[in-house]
Design a binder for these strands. Structure first.
Lengths: 226, 226
DNA sequence: TCTTCTAGTTAGAGGCATCAAACTTAACGG
DNA sequence: CCGTTAAGTTTGATGCCTCTAACTAGAAGA
């Protein structure tokens, strides 16, 4: 991954045009990426230097072996991600597009495989678990408000635990201490003391005191205003 | 979203430092983002122009009301995404970090909500569906090779259908035509004719012919070399 | 053949993000 | 009060990506 993300975009654009059976032109690439032709010419120069494509003045734009392989990898990631976001996570097409565009440059093959495995597993879960699928659809239709880390809640406030963003030891510790989704927390206060501050609050009628590490792993839904 | 992604990163870095109870310094920000102090000074100038923070020569770095709100939004997205990638999708911590870093600038609140809903639904599915969870874990442990769109397979080749990356009409059409995961396709050939070409192949002992649109929505696992 | 149009190119510029190297402040200890 | 040190700033430069405006090559008709 030592190509810039942008260079990968140009490669991908060329491949996509080729896939329609045509030979890529500067104008088409420009339209595809939403830039001017001048910009494309400049980019082609860079691409050519890297030996990812061949291009003579006023000539055809042709991917090299190497360029084609790189383009395919990017294209595959892009398509896969976009599909994943739309079908599995229920993103809008447009949003999925934008997110895939930036993400496609950041995931490696291993990651892509994991993602694919996840999608497959989910597809299997869908068959033969209609109940769960219905719940998921429902959830996607009526999203809740967004949570906030405990350490950022205003003094005196509270809310229900949304999630714990921690792993391993810390996660386990918080879980066994009763920090689980839906538990209610009230009367949050922040004090100086430890570096980062100390936080006290009430949960299950018990007064609890934690540090910044814990307080930034516990996310709360703010109580609705209704 | 008219701030550049980078500007959002600086904002986030300041907030993260503040969360430890300290006041952000140029050196700390630089270390956080892996850039030099000179770069930070330059960035602070831009941030100040946008009225997202206050900063006098050699003075403290303080977020404005506006800046803090923006920083919190970015921070929340970042943490949530990172957690999602690690816990739900099984990414490595490092990879999750990189992906969240680019993605956090591309998702809006609506999208974040959907993602959260998905996570919640999955959490519910996990309780009370141990079987499925086990399968998912297993799948994440042993990822398969990566598929490729039919239109890019070499002449004469074939493979099993991995997935259909299409929606609505096209998806339905392909499904009812028998294009479902695991179906076997052999002897793929490409011909000129329609714009983008025509593709013929054999599936279930039947010869089929499709265009580029369909051929790029059908993804195949290449048969393993063994 | 000459004209005209389109595709493509070059030249010149600017913004963002970054760096290394040299410089300036502020602060602390003697 | 002065010297040293750490923190922060300035300067000058680079690379990438982009643009507008002006130019040129090539193809297609009259």
């Amino acid at each position: 991954m030592d190509l810039t993300a942008r260079v990968e975009d140009y490669l991908e654009a060329v491949l996509e045009i080729e896939m329609t059976g045509e030979i890529a032109t500067v104008t088409q690439i420009a339209a595809n990426l939403g830039v001017t032709k001048a910009t494309v010419t400049a980019a082609l120069k860079r691409l050519k230097q890297e030996k990812l494509l061949e291009h003579e003045r006023y000539g055809d734009v042709l991917l090299t072996e190497d360029g084609r392989a790189k383009a395919l990898a990017v294209y595959r990631r892009h398509e896969f991600l976009s599909d994943f976001f739309v079908r599995i996570l229920g993103f809008s097409r447009e949003r999925a597009q934008r997110v895939s565009c930036v993400m496609e440059h950041e995931i490696d093959e291993q990651t892509e495989r994991r993602l694919a495995a996840f999608t497959d597993a989910l597809a299997h879960a869908e068959r033969g678990n209609e109940e769960w699928l219905r719940k998921l659809q429902e959830a996607l239709e009526s999203p809740k408000a967004l949570p906030m880390p405990l350490c950022m809640m205003p003094d005196g406030s509270g809310g229900a635990i949304a999630r714990i963003t921690a792993q391993y030891e810390l996660r386990k510790r918080l879980n066994s201490a009763g920090f689980v989704p839906d538990a209610l927390i009230t009367d949050i206060r922040k004090f100086d003391g430890a570096p980062g501050g100390l936080f006290t609050f009430t949960m299950n009628a018990i007064q609890i005191r934690i540090g910044i590490t814990e307080a930034s792993a516990i996310w709360l839904y703010q109580p609705s205003i209704a």
